[in-house]
């Protein structure tokens, strides 16, 4: 039986077909789908922040791009016995567009930049992305095909 596994904010989950992975309500957060094409094992991560190094107590690895992505990648590599992964990402929006800067800067854009840098460092090609803008996103990953569907309120569905 195919199961739709819901990935919560600051969490990630790894599974294989026929299961689907989904995460709801990405705003400035980013959903990162990693996939190993031969075994079709894949994972979905919902990160909140770009960089754990600014925090003394970064105990929750799943929350930070720089900790969650390498950890999830290592787990998928170990499970699949394969070294080459691919990625698709969505999120990193700025829900309200103000002209003045917030203390956090544009956290969505910073998250997107950190995620891309992390993927590059891990040599994981980014096959598709839908980031930025002012809309919240819900992301679904079909592990049979690595088709990633991005839904936004009142907008057409994007398939990556």
């Amino acid at each position: 039986m195919a199961e739709e596994i819901k990935v919560k904010i600051s969490d990630y989950h790894i599974t294989q077909p026929p299961n689907l992975l989904m995460t709801i309500g990405l705003g400035s957060c980013i959903g990162i789908a990693l996939y190993e094409p031969k075994t079709k094992i894949g994972g979905l991560s919902h990160i909140m922040l770009p960089d754990s190094r600014a925090f003394k107590e970064a105990t929750k690895h799943e929350k930070f791009a720089d900790l969650a992505i390498p950890q999830m990648a290592a787990e998928i590599k170990a499970l699949s016995g394969q070294a080459r992964l691919v990625a698709k990402i969505a999120g990193g929006a700025s829900m309200f567009q103000f002209t003045t800067e917030t203390p956090a800067g544009n956290i969505g854009a910073r998250n997107a930049a950190a995620v891309k840098q992390c993927l590059q460092e891990l040599n994981i090609p980014l096959l598709g992305e839908h980031t930025g803008g002012n809309s919240g996103r819900t992301m679904t990953v079909d592990l049979a095909t690595f088709e990633v569907t991005v839904r936004m309120v009142n907008r057409e569905i994007i398939v990556l």
């Binding site: 904010i9 309500g25 705003g27 957060c29 909140m48 309200f96 956290i107 969505g108 919240g136 996103r137």
Partner: peptide, 9 residues
């Protein structure tokens, strides 16, 4: 928009 996207952001 979605409550989840708004609140976290």
């Amino acid at each position: 928009d979605l409550f989840g996207s708004i609140v976290s952001s």
